[in-house]
Nucleic acid binder design. Structure first.
Lengths: 219, 219
DNA sequence: TAAATGTTTTTTGTATACAATATCTATTGA
DNA sequence: TCAATAGATATTGTATACAAAAAACATTTA
């Protein structure tokens, strides 16, 4: 039997704000006007403050002394760092999946990318975006590591790096995903981890090359 | 010229609480009495609340609806997960060090474990504990990844897993550290990452074997 | 015009009050 | 003696008020 929900206002505000960030109602870099926002949500400033602090702890927001809260924006340099982090975490996740995931779960992961025929049309492109997201999410869930799972749901880092669309075209990433799925089926943790790390480092390189083009002008 | 500090009360409370958790004044599992604590610190409940929320976001505390805040305690299962996470993150850190760290920085990393002669006496054992901590910390700093660096300073996961003493004896970990340092000097990122992951997974196994001994009784 | 100064407005950060809820304690009945 | 209930106490969660600081605006001066 499911528990009766008896949530606290703070939690409701917290969840609402997270959705607002996810939906782009609150834009990266934007200043949060506490008074305005609390009136908009129909709550006092106290539960809003609590929610804002928590979101700052989770890196969705940034607090600047005496200036208030701002929606966290990631520089190109930080985006590079973000993909390195994801490579690390998801690399470990897929390794653990090789050890812990059931046959059914591996089947499910494999099914994510079933039936794509290239070149993709607009509809199947959208489906690929979705497949990509669920694949990486399920990997974490089936890794059996509760900390990774918690991080993926509550860390602004993980969620924000997942938000923007694809960084590389499906033609490029599809074979990489296939190779990972093969490694999963072979229960080859070392191989799978290597592949996942490479997968994310290649995405990182997209941002890093952007960065390098800028730098010379600054010097 | 250094800026004049004009910190907010919330931040001071936040930092104080972090020290209190680190020093064991606040014990894992313990309930936080807000009224008592606010009086102890000589502040009102508002800045305390903000600090508590932030610390919950960073996973130092846990908030249970209508019961308040508790110092976060990690089960054996979560400790296993924690070391898997550290393996992932520090594995990436050492890989990046192979790419980005300067010769001086690699020298500095190597120096951490200079001059240990086995068997260690009480004094040199303590020095080894310290060396271990600084080695892993510097790796993250010299990786050039600002997100990893931020995480290592503000994530309850990272800090808490670092708090307890050594999980394995120096005799066992010393050669592992030496191998990593060699890989660093060779700028062999793949190798270094592999070694680091194995290093932490072995520590994980210490907790995992504890877990397995318990399980059969539950069934 | 543009920079510097002074004034007003807005917004933050903090304290405090209070109602709702949980926890503890005492009492009753089996 | 123990469990169940009712009452008292403590603690949380929320609203509100207000001082201090920042931001915006207007005014003066070069």
């Amino acid at each position: 039997m499911s528990k009766i929900e008896n949530k606290i206002l703070t939690d409701l505000v917290y969840e609402k704000l997270k959705v607002m960030i996810d939906d782009g109602v609150l834009i990266p870099g934007q200043k949060i006007n506490k008074l305005e926002l609390s009136q908009m949500l129909g709550v006092s400033q106290t539960p809003l403050n609590d929610a804002l602090s928590r979101l700052a702890g989770e890196k969705f927001l940034e607090q600047r002394s005496r200036q208030g809260y701002f929606v966290r924006a990631f520089s190109d340099e930080e985006l590079v760092a973000l993909f390195e982090m994801r490579g690390a975490l998801e690399g470990m996740a897929i390794r653990l999946c090789c050890e812990n995931a059931t046959a059914d779960q591996i089947e499910e992961l494999s099914d994510c990318f079933e039936g794509f025929i290239f070149p993709l049309n607009d509809k199947s492109y959208m489906e690929y975006v979705h497949a990509d997201k669920t694949f990486h999410e399920k990997l974490i869930r089936y890794s059996g590591n509760p900390i990774l799972w918690e991080l993926s749901r509550t860390s602004g880092y993980m969620i924000k790096s997942n938000m923007k669309g694809l960084t590389r075209p499906p033609e490029e990433t599809y074979p990489e995903h296939m190779a990972m799925i093969q490694a999963l089926k072979d229960h080859d943790g070392d191989k799978a981890q290597q592949l996942m790390i490479q997968h994310h480092l290649r995405s990182r390189n997209v941002f890093r090359s952007k960065l390098k083009k800028k730098e010379p002008n600054i010097r």
